[in-house]
Design a binder for these strands. Structure first.
Length: 480
RNA sequence: GGCGCAUUCGUCUAGGGGUUAGGACGCCGGCCUCUCACGCCGGUAACAGGGGUUCGAAUCCCCUAUGCGCUACCA
Protein backbone atom coordinates (compact mmCIF):
# COMPACT_ATOMS: atom_id res chain seq x y z
CA UNK A 1 0.00 0.00 0.00
CA UNK A 2 1.40 3.34 -0.97
CA UNK A 3 2.04 6.16 1.46
CA UNK A 4 -0.68 8.77 1.36
CA UNK A 5 -0.82 11.61 3.86
CA UNK A 6 -2.97 14.68 4.13
CA UNK A 7 -2.88 18.16 5.54
CA UNK A 8 -6.43 19.09 6.52
CA UNK A 9 -6.71 22.67 7.73
CA UNK A 10 -9.89 24.56 8.25
CA UNK A 11 -9.82 27.74 6.21
CA UNK A 12 -9.82 30.36 8.96
CA UNK A 13 -8.13 33.10 6.98
CA UNK A 14 -4.38 32.51 7.19
CA UNK A 15 -1.93 29.66 7.59
CA UNK A 16 -0.87 29.28 11.21
CA UNK A 17 2.79 28.49 11.74
CA UNK A 18 1.74 25.42 13.75
CA UNK A 19 -0.32 24.36 10.77
CA UNK A 20 2.71 24.83 8.55
CA UNK A 21 4.71 22.53 10.84
CA UNK A 22 2.02 19.85 10.58
CA UNK A 23 1.91 20.31 6.81
CA UNK A 24 5.70 20.13 6.63
CA UNK A 25 5.97 16.85 8.54
CA UNK A 26 3.29 15.34 6.32
CA UNK A 27 5.02 16.63 3.22
CA UNK A 28 8.49 15.47 4.29
CA UNK A 29 7.14 12.03 5.03
CA UNK A 30 5.34 11.83 1.70
CA UNK A 31 8.36 12.99 -0.29
CA UNK A 32 10.70 10.65 1.53
CA UNK A 33 8.43 7.64 1.02
CA UNK A 34 7.65 8.54 -2.56
CA UNK A 35 4.02 8.92 -1.53
CA UNK A 36 1.32 11.53 -2.07
CA UNK A 37 0.65 14.74 -0.18
CA UNK A 38 -3.04 15.58 -0.13
CA UNK A 39 -4.60 18.90 0.80
CA UNK A 40 -8.13 18.70 2.14
CA UNK A 41 -10.18 21.66 3.27
CA UNK A 42 -12.18 21.08 6.44
CA UNK A 43 -14.86 23.71 6.12
CA UNK A 44 -17.70 21.97 7.92
CA UNK A 45 -18.23 24.84 10.32
CA UNK A 46 -20.36 27.26 8.39
CA UNK A 47 -20.11 29.95 11.06
CA UNK A 48 -16.37 30.19 10.52
CA UNK A 49 -16.40 30.79 6.79
CA UNK A 50 -13.87 33.36 5.64
CA UNK A 51 -13.53 34.96 2.26
CA UNK A 52 -10.27 34.31 0.45
CA UNK A 53 -9.04 31.86 3.04
CA UNK A 54 -8.33 29.11 0.56
CA UNK A 55 -6.30 31.42 -1.66
CA UNK A 56 -4.19 32.59 1.28
CA UNK A 57 -3.60 29.01 2.31
CA UNK A 58 -2.48 27.92 -1.13
CA UNK A 59 -0.24 30.92 -1.48
CA UNK A 60 1.44 30.27 1.86
CA UNK A 61 2.03 26.61 1.04
CA UNK A 62 3.48 27.51 -2.30
CA UNK A 63 5.77 30.12 -0.77
CA UNK A 64 6.98 27.52 1.69
CA UNK A 65 7.65 25.13 -1.15
CA UNK A 66 5.20 22.43 -0.08
CA UNK A 67 3.75 21.25 -3.35
CA UNK A 68 0.41 19.49 -3.25
CA UNK A 69 -0.25 16.29 -5.18
CA UNK A 70 -4.00 16.17 -4.70
CA UNK A 71 -6.27 18.92 -3.52
CA UNK A 72 -8.87 21.53 -4.44
CA UNK A 73 -6.51 23.18 -6.90
CA UNK A 74 -4.35 20.22 -7.85
CA UNK A 75 -7.27 17.91 -8.49
CA UNK A 76 -7.15 14.16 -8.06
CA UNK A 77 -9.22 11.05 -8.48
CA UNK A 78 -10.57 10.85 -4.93
CA UNK A 79 -12.10 14.30 -4.66
CA UNK A 80 -13.78 16.57 -4.13
CA UNK A 81 -11.20 17.78 -1.61
CA UNK A 82 -13.40 20.35 0.05
CA UNK A 83 -15.66 18.88 2.71
CA UNK A 84 -18.60 21.19 2.11
CA UNK A 85 -18.81 19.58 -1.34
CA UNK A 86 -19.02 16.10 0.12
CA UNK A 87 -22.19 16.35 2.21
CA UNK A 88 -23.98 13.63 0.28
CA UNK A 89 -21.13 11.23 1.06
CA UNK A 90 -21.38 11.89 4.78
CA UNK A 91 -25.16 11.48 4.76
CA UNK A 92 -24.85 8.13 3.06
CA UNK A 93 -22.32 6.92 5.59
CA UNK A 94 -24.14 8.19 8.61
CA UNK A 95 -27.26 6.41 7.38
CA UNK A 96 -25.32 3.17 7.33
CA UNK A 97 -24.31 3.77 10.96
CA UNK A 98 -27.94 4.43 11.83
CA UNK A 99 -29.05 1.24 10.11
CA UNK A 100 -26.43 -0.82 11.90
CA UNK A 101 -27.23 0.63 15.29
CA UNK A 102 -23.86 2.35 15.74
CA UNK A 103 -25.47 5.76 15.78
CA UNK A 104 -28.77 7.26 16.86
CA UNK A 105 -30.89 10.35 16.44
CA UNK A 106 -30.95 12.89 19.23
CA UNK A 107 -33.65 15.52 19.64
CA UNK A 108 -32.21 17.30 22.64
CA UNK A 109 -32.09 21.07 22.22
CA UNK A 110 -28.90 23.02 22.68
CA UNK A 111 -30.58 24.63 25.70
CA UNK A 112 -31.16 21.31 27.37
CA UNK A 113 -27.58 20.26 26.71
CA UNK A 114 -26.30 23.46 28.20
CA UNK A 115 -28.38 23.03 31.33
CA UNK A 116 -27.14 19.49 31.59
CA UNK A 117 -23.54 20.63 31.43
CA UNK A 118 -24.17 23.36 34.01
CA UNK A 119 -25.67 20.86 36.41
CA UNK A 120 -22.83 18.42 35.92
CA UNK A 121 -20.24 21.10 36.46
CA UNK A 122 -21.91 22.20 39.70
CA UNK A 123 -21.97 18.62 40.93
CA UNK A 124 -18.31 18.30 40.06
CA UNK A 125 -18.79 15.33 37.78
CA UNK A 126 -17.56 14.78 34.26
CA UNK A 127 -19.69 16.70 31.79
CA UNK A 128 -21.07 14.34 29.20
CA UNK A 129 -24.25 13.76 27.25
CA UNK A 130 -26.68 11.73 29.39
CA UNK A 131 -27.79 9.53 26.48
CA UNK A 132 -31.34 10.77 26.87
CA UNK A 133 -32.27 9.87 23.28
CA UNK A 134 -30.14 6.78 22.94
CA UNK A 135 -32.90 4.28 23.51
CA UNK A 136 -35.70 5.79 21.46
CA UNK A 137 -37.15 3.10 19.19
CA UNK A 138 -35.49 3.73 15.79
CA UNK A 139 -38.85 3.75 13.98
CA UNK A 140 -40.24 6.47 16.26
CA UNK A 141 -37.09 8.51 15.90
CA UNK A 142 -37.24 8.43 12.11
CA UNK A 143 -40.86 9.49 12.20
CA UNK A 144 -40.09 12.44 14.48
CA UNK A 145 -37.12 13.42 12.34
CA UNK A 146 -39.49 14.20 9.48
CA UNK A 147 -40.60 17.45 11.07
CA UNK A 148 -38.31 17.94 14.04
CA UNK A 149 -34.66 18.94 13.79
CA UNK A 150 -32.34 16.31 15.10
CA UNK A 151 -28.68 15.47 15.22
CA UNK A 152 -26.97 12.13 14.99
CA UNK A 153 -24.72 10.76 17.70
CA UNK A 154 -22.26 7.92 17.88
CA UNK A 155 -23.45 5.09 20.17
CA UNK A 156 -20.32 4.53 22.23
CA UNK A 157 -20.13 1.14 23.97
CA UNK A 158 -20.75 1.44 27.71
CA UNK A 159 -17.57 -0.30 28.70
CA UNK A 160 -14.34 -1.55 27.33
CA UNK A 161 -10.93 -0.19 26.57
CA UNK A 162 -9.34 1.18 23.45
CA UNK A 163 -5.62 0.73 23.03
CA UNK A 164 -3.66 1.84 20.04
CA UNK A 165 -0.09 2.39 18.96
CA UNK A 166 0.83 5.96 18.13
CA UNK A 167 4.02 6.32 16.11
CA UNK A 168 5.24 9.18 18.28
CA UNK A 169 3.88 8.22 21.69
CA UNK A 170 3.82 4.43 21.49
CA UNK A 171 0.98 2.79 23.39
CA UNK A 172 -1.98 5.01 24.36
CA UNK A 173 -5.10 3.73 26.13
CA UNK A 174 -8.59 5.03 26.92
CA UNK A 175 -11.47 3.58 28.94
CA UNK A 176 -14.73 3.72 27.02
CA UNK A 177 -16.64 4.72 30.17
CA UNK A 178 -15.13 8.16 29.79
CA UNK A 179 -15.99 8.59 26.12
CA UNK A 180 -18.96 10.76 25.21
CA UNK A 181 -21.60 9.98 22.57
CA UNK A 182 -20.02 12.29 20.04
CA UNK A 183 -22.16 14.26 17.63
CA UNK A 184 -21.54 13.06 14.07
CA UNK A 185 -24.03 15.07 12.09
CA UNK A 186 -25.07 18.55 13.12
CA UNK A 187 -28.51 20.15 12.92
CA UNK A 188 -27.55 22.02 9.75
CA UNK A 189 -26.79 18.76 7.99
CA UNK A 190 -23.01 19.26 8.12
CA UNK A 191 -20.82 16.57 9.62
CA UNK A 192 -18.58 17.24 12.61
CA UNK A 193 -14.83 16.91 12.25
CA UNK A 194 -14.93 13.44 13.74
CA UNK A 195 -17.22 11.92 11.13
CA UNK A 196 -15.83 13.81 8.18
CA UNK A 197 -12.18 13.10 8.87
CA UNK A 198 -12.72 9.37 9.33
CA UNK A 199 -14.87 9.01 6.23
CA UNK A 200 -12.55 11.11 4.10
CA UNK A 201 -9.34 9.56 5.32
CA UNK A 202 -10.73 6.16 4.46
CA UNK A 203 -12.16 7.13 1.10
CA UNK A 204 -9.02 9.04 0.15
CA UNK A 205 -6.95 6.01 1.14
CA UNK A 206 -4.87 7.90 3.64
CA UNK A 207 -2.19 5.63 5.09
CA UNK A 208 -0.83 7.85 7.88
CA UNK A 209 -2.61 10.52 9.86
CA UNK A 210 -0.03 13.02 11.06
CA UNK A 211 -1.66 15.77 13.08
CA UNK A 212 -1.40 17.88 16.23
CA UNK A 213 -1.52 16.49 19.73
CA UNK A 214 -4.78 18.30 20.40
CA UNK A 215 -6.47 15.45 18.53
CA UNK A 216 -5.16 12.70 20.75
CA UNK A 217 -8.18 12.74 23.10
CA UNK A 218 -10.50 12.16 20.12
CA UNK A 219 -8.79 8.94 19.15
CA UNK A 220 -11.28 6.55 20.80
CA UNK A 221 -14.13 8.17 18.87
CA UNK A 222 -12.28 7.90 15.61
CA UNK A 223 -11.20 4.32 16.21
CA UNK A 224 -14.78 3.39 17.15
CA UNK A 225 -15.94 4.86 13.86
CA UNK A 226 -13.45 2.83 11.87
CA UNK A 227 -14.70 -0.22 13.73
CA UNK A 228 -18.34 0.61 13.10
CA UNK A 229 -17.71 1.00 9.39
CA UNK A 230 -15.63 -2.15 9.33
CA UNK A 231 -12.61 -0.27 8.01
CA UNK A 232 -8.99 -0.71 8.84
CA UNK A 233 -7.70 2.49 10.44
CA UNK A 234 -4.59 4.25 9.14
CA UNK A 235 -1.46 4.65 11.26
CA UNK A 236 -1.44 7.67 13.57
CA UNK A 237 1.27 10.09 14.63
CA UNK A 238 0.34 12.89 17.03
CA UNK A 239 2.76 15.80 16.95
CA UNK A 240 3.77 17.84 19.99
CA UNK A 241 2.37 21.35 20.17
CA UNK A 242 4.16 24.59 19.35
CA UNK A 243 4.14 26.77 22.44
CA UNK A 244 4.20 30.40 23.53
CA UNK A 245 6.90 31.58 25.94
CA UNK A 246 4.59 30.71 28.85
CA UNK A 247 4.18 27.17 27.47
CA UNK A 248 0.56 27.60 26.41
CA UNK A 249 -0.47 26.60 22.91
CA UNK A 250 1.06 29.01 20.39
CA UNK A 251 -1.43 31.78 19.82
CA UNK A 252 -1.94 35.02 18.02
CA UNK A 253 -2.05 37.03 21.20
CA UNK A 254 1.52 36.29 22.20
CA UNK A 255 3.39 36.60 18.96
CA UNK A 256 3.49 36.19 15.25
CA UNK A 257 1.67 33.09 14.07
CA UNK A 258 0.71 33.83 10.47
CA UNK A 259 3.16 32.40 7.96
CA UNK A 260 2.51 35.42 5.78
CA UNK A 261 3.90 37.71 8.47
CA UNK A 262 7.19 35.86 8.62
CA UNK A 263 7.43 36.39 4.93
CA UNK A 264 6.96 40.13 5.23
CA UNK A 265 9.46 40.22 8.09
CA UNK A 266 12.07 38.95 5.71
CA UNK A 267 12.33 35.33 6.73
CA UNK A 268 13.40 33.10 3.84
CA UNK A 269 11.06 30.16 3.22
CA UNK A 270 13.94 27.72 3.50
CA UNK A 271 14.88 29.19 6.87
CA UNK A 272 11.35 28.95 8.25
CA UNK A 273 11.13 25.36 7.06
CA UNK A 274 14.52 24.57 8.61
CA UNK A 275 13.56 26.14 11.93
CA UNK A 276 10.11 24.63 12.12
CA UNK A 277 11.37 21.18 11.19
CA UNK A 278 13.64 21.33 14.23
CA UNK A 279 10.77 22.18 16.57
CA UNK A 280 9.80 18.66 17.49
CA UNK A 281 12.17 16.66 15.39
CA UNK A 282 15.93 16.20 15.33
CA UNK A 283 18.25 13.64 13.85
CA UNK A 284 21.18 12.16 15.75
CA UNK A 285 23.71 14.60 14.35
CA UNK A 286 24.65 18.05 15.57
CA UNK A 287 23.55 19.63 12.33
CA UNK A 288 21.49 22.81 12.65
CA UNK A 289 21.26 24.10 9.14
CA UNK A 290 19.31 21.90 6.76
CA UNK A 291 18.25 22.40 3.18
CA UNK A 292 14.86 21.02 2.23
CA UNK A 293 16.38 18.06 0.41
CA UNK A 294 18.45 17.17 3.44
CA UNK A 295 15.31 17.24 5.56
CA UNK A 296 13.52 14.92 3.18
CA UNK A 297 16.44 12.51 3.50
CA UNK A 298 16.85 12.69 7.26
CA UNK A 299 13.27 13.00 8.51
CA UNK A 300 11.62 10.23 10.46
CA UNK A 301 8.40 10.10 12.46
CA UNK A 302 10.04 7.82 15.01
CA UNK A 303 12.38 10.63 16.01
CA UNK A 304 9.63 13.17 16.57
CA UNK A 305 9.75 14.66 20.05
CA UNK A 306 6.96 13.97 22.53
CA UNK A 307 6.87 17.27 24.39
CA UNK A 308 5.92 20.71 23.14
CA UNK A 309 8.46 23.22 21.88
CA UNK A 310 8.56 26.93 22.62
CA UNK A 311 8.81 29.04 19.50
CA UNK A 312 12.12 30.88 19.90
CA UNK A 313 12.24 33.86 17.60
CA UNK A 314 15.92 34.54 18.35
CA UNK A 315 16.93 31.20 16.99
CA UNK A 316 14.70 31.61 13.95
CA UNK A 317 16.52 34.85 13.20
CA UNK A 318 19.90 33.20 13.56
CA UNK A 319 18.89 30.38 11.23
CA UNK A 320 17.58 32.94 8.79
CA UNK A 321 20.94 34.74 8.88
CA UNK A 322 22.65 31.45 8.11
CA UNK A 323 20.40 30.87 5.13
CA UNK A 324 20.90 34.44 3.93
CA UNK A 325 24.66 34.01 3.98
CA UNK A 326 24.38 30.83 1.97
CA UNK A 327 22.63 32.75 -0.81
CA UNK A 328 24.77 33.79 -3.75
CA UNK A 329 25.07 37.52 -4.26
CA UNK A 330 22.61 37.59 -7.19
CA UNK A 331 20.16 35.49 -5.18
CA UNK A 332 20.52 37.80 -2.22
CA UNK A 333 20.01 40.87 -4.37
CA UNK A 334 16.84 39.35 -5.76
CA UNK A 335 15.60 38.32 -2.32
CA UNK A 336 15.88 41.82 -0.88
CA UNK A 337 14.24 43.50 -3.85
CA UNK A 338 10.66 43.26 -2.51
CA UNK A 339 11.66 45.00 0.72
CA UNK A 340 12.36 48.32 -0.95
CA UNK A 341 9.23 50.33 -1.41
CA UNK A 342 10.86 52.97 -3.56
CA UNK A 343 12.67 52.63 -6.83
CA UNK A 344 16.12 52.55 -5.31
CA UNK A 345 18.76 51.22 -7.61
CA UNK A 346 20.53 48.83 -5.27
CA UNK A 347 23.81 47.92 -6.86
CA UNK A 348 25.56 44.63 -6.45
CA UNK A 349 28.24 46.37 -4.40
CA UNK A 350 25.62 47.71 -1.98
CA UNK A 351 24.03 44.30 -1.63
CA UNK A 352 27.42 42.71 -1.06
CA UNK A 353 28.21 45.24 1.65
CA UNK A 354 25.23 44.20 3.81
CA UNK A 355 25.07 40.51 2.97
CA UNK A 356 26.61 39.38 6.26
CA UNK A 357 25.07 42.08 8.37
CA UNK A 358 21.40 41.12 8.50
CA UNK A 359 19.33 38.34 9.95
CA UNK A 360 16.11 39.63 8.38
CA UNK A 361 15.77 40.74 4.77
CA UNK A 362 13.58 43.61 5.95
CA UNK A 363 16.57 45.06 7.83
CA UNK A 364 18.35 45.85 4.58
CA UNK A 365 16.56 49.04 3.49
CA UNK A 366 17.53 50.86 6.70
CA UNK A 367 21.16 49.96 6.23
CA UNK A 368 21.25 51.27 2.68
CA UNK A 369 18.94 54.24 3.06
CA UNK A 370 21.74 56.81 3.35
CA UNK A 371 22.86 56.03 -0.19
CA UNK A 372 19.60 57.46 -1.41
CA UNK A 373 18.79 60.17 1.12
CA UNK A 374 19.94 63.67 0.23
CA UNK A 375 20.70 65.64 2.25
CA UNK A 376 21.92 63.06 4.70
CA UNK A 377 19.98 62.55 7.92
CA UNK A 378 22.05 62.09 11.06
CA UNK A 379 20.84 59.64 13.65
CA UNK A 380 21.52 60.11 17.39
CA UNK A 381 24.76 58.14 17.42
CA UNK A 382 26.00 60.06 14.42
CA UNK A 383 25.24 63.39 16.03
CA UNK A 384 27.15 62.32 19.09
CA UNK A 385 30.12 61.21 17.03
CA UNK A 386 30.18 64.55 15.24
CA UNK A 387 30.39 66.49 18.49
CA UNK A 388 33.22 64.38 19.88
CA UNK A 389 36.43 66.10 20.97
CA UNK A 390 38.49 65.26 17.90
CA UNK A 391 35.68 65.12 15.35
CA UNK A 392 36.16 68.59 13.89
CA UNK A 393 39.94 68.17 13.71
CA UNK A 394 39.73 64.85 11.92
CA UNK A 395 37.13 66.06 9.47
CA UNK A 396 38.98 69.32 8.71
CA UNK A 397 42.16 67.49 7.92
CA UNK A 398 40.31 64.98 5.77
CA UNK A 399 38.58 67.80 3.97
CA UNK A 400 41.92 69.44 3.27
CA UNK A 401 43.27 66.21 1.78
CA UNK A 402 40.19 65.86 -0.33
CA UNK A 403 40.48 69.43 -1.56
CA UNK A 404 44.02 68.72 -2.68
CA UNK A 405 43.22 65.43 -4.33
CA UNK A 406 40.27 66.59 -6.34
CA UNK A 407 41.91 69.75 -7.54
CA UNK A 408 42.13 69.10 -11.26
CA UNK A 409 45.55 70.73 -11.45
CA UNK A 410 47.04 68.05 -9.25
CA UNK A 411 47.34 64.37 -9.85
CA UNK A 412 44.49 62.86 -7.86
CA UNK A 413 43.67 59.22 -7.43
CA UNK A 414 41.79 57.67 -10.27
CA UNK A 415 38.14 56.92 -9.53
CA UNK A 416 38.42 53.19 -9.18
CA UNK A 417 41.19 53.65 -6.64
CA UNK A 418 39.34 56.29 -4.65
CA UNK A 419 38.31 53.82 -1.98
CA UNK A 420 41.83 52.70 -1.32
CA UNK A 421 43.16 56.21 -1.44
CA UNK A 422 40.51 57.22 1.08
CA UNK A 423 41.41 54.38 3.44
CA UNK A 424 45.10 55.10 3.47
CA UNK A 425 44.50 58.81 3.78
CA UNK A 426 42.25 58.36 6.80
CA UNK A 427 44.71 55.95 8.38
CA UNK A 428 47.45 58.52 7.97
CA UNK A 429 45.26 61.09 9.65
CA UNK A 430 44.62 58.59 12.40
CA UNK A 431 48.33 58.31 13.02
CA UNK A 432 48.62 62.07 13.29
CA UNK A 433 45.87 62.13 15.90
CA UNK A 434 46.94 58.90 17.58
CA UNK A 435 43.51 57.42 16.91
CA UNK A 436 42.14 54.30 15.29
CA UNK A 437 39.05 52.16 15.32
CA UNK A 438 35.77 53.79 16.13
CA UNK A 439 37.42 56.90 17.60
CA UNK A 440 38.76 57.65 14.18
CA UNK A 441 36.04 56.28 11.91
CA UNK A 442 32.79 57.18 13.64
CA UNK A 443 33.01 60.91 12.92
CA UNK A 444 33.83 60.18 9.29
CA UNK A 445 31.02 57.66 8.88
CA UNK A 446 28.65 60.01 10.65
CA UNK A 447 29.51 62.86 8.31
CA UNK A 448 29.18 60.85 5.12
CA UNK A 449 26.49 58.29 5.94
CA UNK A 450 24.65 59.87 8.86
CA UNK A 451 25.24 56.68 10.86
CA UNK A 452 28.16 55.19 12.68
CA UNK A 453 27.45 51.65 11.52
CA UNK A 454 26.94 50.36 8.02
CA UNK A 455 28.67 49.09 4.91
CA UNK A 456 32.43 49.19 4.60
CA UNK A 457 33.89 52.59 3.75
CA UNK A 458 35.42 51.46 0.47
CA UNK A 459 31.97 50.63 -0.89
CA UNK A 460 30.58 53.89 0.40
CA UNK A 461 33.37 56.02 -1.06
CA UNK A 462 33.41 54.28 -4.40
CA UNK A 463 29.66 54.47 -4.69
CA UNK A 464 29.51 58.16 -3.82
CA UNK A 465 32.75 59.33 -5.37
CA UNK A 466 35.18 61.65 -3.61
CA UNK A 467 33.37 64.82 -4.58
CA UNK A 468 30.20 63.83 -2.80
CA UNK A 469 32.14 62.72 0.27
CA UNK A 470 33.76 66.12 0.33
CA UNK A 471 30.40 67.86 0.17
CA UNK A 472 29.04 65.85 3.05
CA UNK A 473 32.08 66.41 5.22
CA UNK A 474 31.89 70.10 4.54
CA UNK A 475 28.19 70.09 5.42
CA UNK A 476 28.87 68.20 8.64
CA UNK A 477 31.58 70.65 9.62
CA UNK A 478 29.26 73.55 8.91
CA UNK A 479 26.47 72.07 10.96
CA UNK A 480 28.67 71.42 14.01
C1' G B 1 -13.72 18.12 38.23
C1' G B 2 -12.84 13.93 34.46
C1' C B 3 -9.66 11.89 30.69
C1' G B 4 -5.06 12.02 28.12
C1' C B 5 -0.06 13.49 27.17
C1' A B 6 4.46 15.40 28.73
C1' U B 7 9.02 16.68 31.96
C1' U B 8 17.79 16.88 30.08
C1' C B 9 21.09 24.02 30.40
C1' G B 10 16.65 30.30 29.95
C1' U B 11 15.29 28.06 24.74
C1' C B 12 15.69 24.04 20.70
C1' U B 13 17.84 19.42 21.52
C1' A B 14 21.79 14.75 21.56
C1' G B 15 22.47 10.72 24.71
C1' G B 16 19.74 6.24 27.31
C1' G B 17 22.52 1.33 33.20
C1' G B 18 29.32 3.11 34.34
C1' U B 19 29.98 9.93 29.81
C1' U B 20 34.27 15.53 32.34
C1' A B 21 25.95 14.64 30.39
C1' G B 22 27.43 16.57 23.84
C1' G B 23 25.75 20.43 20.14
C1' A B 24 23.06 24.96 18.77
C1' C B 25 20.53 29.83 19.98
C1' G B 26 20.98 33.59 23.70
C1' C B 27 24.33 35.78 27.16
C1' C B 28 29.60 36.93 28.77
C1' G B 29 34.91 37.27 27.43
C1' G B 30 38.82 37.20 23.61
C1' C B 31 40.80 37.22 18.49
C1' C B 32 40.11 39.35 13.59
C1' U B 33 39.00 44.38 12.02
C1' C B 34 37.68 50.97 8.78
C1' U B 35 32.28 50.90 11.97
C1' C B 36 28.63 47.25 12.67
C1' A B 37 28.41 42.50 11.50
C1' C B 38 30.37 37.78 9.77
C1' G B 39 33.97 34.21 11.14
C1' C B 40 37.10 31.86 14.80
C1' C B 41 38.45 30.61 20.05
C1' G B 42 36.88 30.22 25.12
C1' G B 43 33.22 30.62 29.19
C1' U B 44 28.19 30.42 31.76
C1' A B 45 24.17 26.94 32.33
C1' A B 46 20.39 21.09 32.72
C1' C B 47 18.82 15.21 33.79
C1' A B 48 11.40 18.12 38.32
C1' G B 49 11.09 15.55 43.43
C1' G B 50 10.68 10.96 46.25
C1' G B 51 10.89 5.83 46.55
C1' G B 52 12.40 1.21 44.51
C1' U B 53 15.48 -2.49 41.06
C1' U B 54 20.92 -2.73 40.61
C1' C B 55 27.67 -3.30 42.47
C1' G B 56 26.12 1.21 39.87
C1' A B 57 20.35 5.06 37.76
C1' A B 58 19.92 11.01 34.20
C1' U B 59 18.86 6.22 31.73
C1' C B 60 14.40 0.72 33.96
C1' C B 61 9.74 0.50 37.44
C1' C B 62 6.26 2.98 40.85
C1' C B 63 4.39 7.32 43.22
C1' U B 64 4.10 12.58 43.69
C1' A B 65 4.47 17.40 41.73
C1' U B 66 4.15 20.64 37.86
C1' G B 67 2.83 21.98 32.93
C1' C B 68 -0.05 21.44 28.73
C1' G B 69 -4.11 19.50 25.72
C1' C B 70 -9.12 17.82 25.35
C1' U B 71 -13.72 17.83 27.85
C1' A B 72 -19.18 22.10 21.78
C1' C B 73 -24.56 20.73 17.04
C1' C B 74 -15.42 24.39 16.61
C1' A B 75 -11.60 22.29 14.11
Amino acid sequence: MSTRVRFAPSPTGFLHVGGLRTALYNWLFARQQGGSFILRIEDTDQSRRKEGALENLLEALEWAGLDVDEGPQAGGKLGPYVQSERLEIYHRHVQQLLDDGHAYRCFCTPERLEQLRDRQRKMGVASRYDRHCRNLPPGDAEARAADETSIIRLAVPESGRIVFEDIVRRKVAFDLETVDDQVLLKGDGFPTYHLANVVDDHLMQVSHVIRGEEWLPSMPKHLLLYQAFGWEPPRFAHLPLLLNKDRSKLSKRQGTVAVEEYRTQGILPGALINFIALMGWHDQSDQDIFGVEELVQAFSLERVQKSGAIFDTEKLHWINGQHIRRLSLPEFREAIQPYFDTQWDVTEAMAAAVHTKVSLLSDVPDLLAFFFEDPVVYDDDAREALTGAEAAGILSMLLAKLDESTDPSRAGPSTDLSGEWFMSTVKAIGEDFGLKGRELWHPIRAAIAGRVVGPDMITIVETFGLEKCRERIRAALAAA
